[in-house]
Amino acid sequence: MYTCKDSINLLLDYLDGELSPEDAQHLKEHLQGCAPCVDFLRTYRATPGLCKKALAHRMPQEMSSKLTEFLRSKIKSAS
């Protein structure tokens, strides 16, 4: 049986269909009994769509300018 850490490390291969049948079965068994890993998988699957939505919106110019000014001041004060 896989641990949560094992399961999380295998998620990308699982979603890409690249796990061996044995590993996929062990992962599915773990997911059946582990609500936190199921939640993590759900979030992991949703991330690309959320990123696309976020990138589809453009930051208002005034906010972009203020953010740039703020970050530059922080970089200068850290030097």
Results as ranks from 00 to 15, higher is better:
residue 25 Q to V: 03
residue 26 H to P: 00
residue 19 L to R: 01
residue 69 E to F: 01
residue 13 D to H: 00
residue 12 L to Q: 11
residue 32 Q to G: 03
residue 5 K to S: 15
residue 58 R to S: 12
residue 76 K to D: 07
residue 11 L to H: 06
residue 44 Y to E: 06
residue 79 S to G: 02
residue 59 M to L: 12
residue 57 H to S: 05
residue 68 T to L: 03
residue 68 T to N: 11
residue 8 I to C: 10
residue 68 T to C: 08
residue 76 K to A: 01
residue 49 G to P: 03
residue 67 L to E: 10
residue 78 A to I: 08
residue 37 C to N: 12
residue 18 E to H: 08
residue 33 G to K: 14
residue 62 E to A: 15
residue 44 Y to H: 04
residue 72 R to T: 02
residue 6 D to P: 05
residue 6 D to T: 13
residue 36 P to L: 14
residue 34 C to H: 11
residue 47 T to M: 15
residue 27 L to T: 03
residue 30 H to V: 08
residue 56 A to P: 01
residue 19 L to W: 05
residue 41 L to E: 07
residue 11 L to R: 02
residue 61 Q to E: 15
residue 71 L to F: 15
residue 44 Y to Q: 07
residue 32 Q to V: 12
residue 53 K to T: 02
residue 45 R to E: 13
residue 22 E to S: 04
residue 77 S to E: 13
residue 8 I to A: 10
residue 56 A to K: 02
residue 62 E to V: 10
residue 42 R to W: 01
residue 22 E to R: 05
residue 6 D to Q: 14
residue 67 L to I: 14
residue 48 P to C: 09
residue 42 R to I: 08
residue 67 L to H: 11
residue 13 D to G: 05
residue 5 K to D: 12
residue 76 K to F: 10
residue 61 Q to L: 13
residue 23 D to Q: 05
residue 14 Y to I: 06
residue 51 C to Q: 13
residue 32 Q to N: 11
residue 42 R to A: 06
residue 72 R to H: 15
residue 12 L to W: 06
residue 46 A to D: 11
residue 40 F to S: 03
residue 10 L to N: 10
residue 54 A to I: 08
residue 16 D to F: 02
residue 19 L to V: 04
residue 20 S to C: 02
residue 70 F to A: 05
residue 14 Y to L: 02
residue 39 D to I: 10
residue 35 A to W: 13
residue 51 C to M: 09
residue 70 F to G: 01
residue 46 A to L: 13
residue 16 D to H: 09
residue 49 G to E: 09
residue 5 K to W: 08
residue 30 H to S: 04
residue 49 G to S: 07
residue 25 Q to H: 13
residue 44 Y to V: 07
residue 42 R to M: 04
residue 28 K to W: 05
residue 16 D to K: 09
residue 18 E to M: 11
residue 10 L to F: 13
residue 19 L to T: 04
residue 21 P to I: 09
residue 24 A to V: 08
residue 56 A to W: 00
residue 41 L to T: 01
residue 30 H to L: 10
residue 22 E to V: 02
residue 21 P to N: 12
residue 1 M to D: 06
residue 24 A to W: 03
residue 72 R to C: 07
residue 25 Q to D: 07
residue 57 H to T: 09
residue 72 R to I: 09
residue 5 K to T: 15
residue 74 K to Q: 12
residue 3 T to C: 11
residue 9 N to S: 08
residue 4 C to K: 14
residue 55 L to E: 03
residue 13 D to F: 00
residue 52 K to R: 13
residue 15 L to G: 00
residue 30 H to R: 00
residue 21 P to E: 12
residue 51 C to R: 13
residue 32 Q to I: 13
residue 71 L to R: 09
residue 19 L to I: 07
residue 36 P to W: 15
residue 30 H to T: 06
residue 22 E to Q: 03
residue 63 M to T: 12
residue 60 P to T: 02
residue 11 L to W: 06
residue 53 K to D: 06
residue 55 L to N: 01
residue 32 Q to W: 12
residue 65 S to L: 15
residue 24 A to E: 14
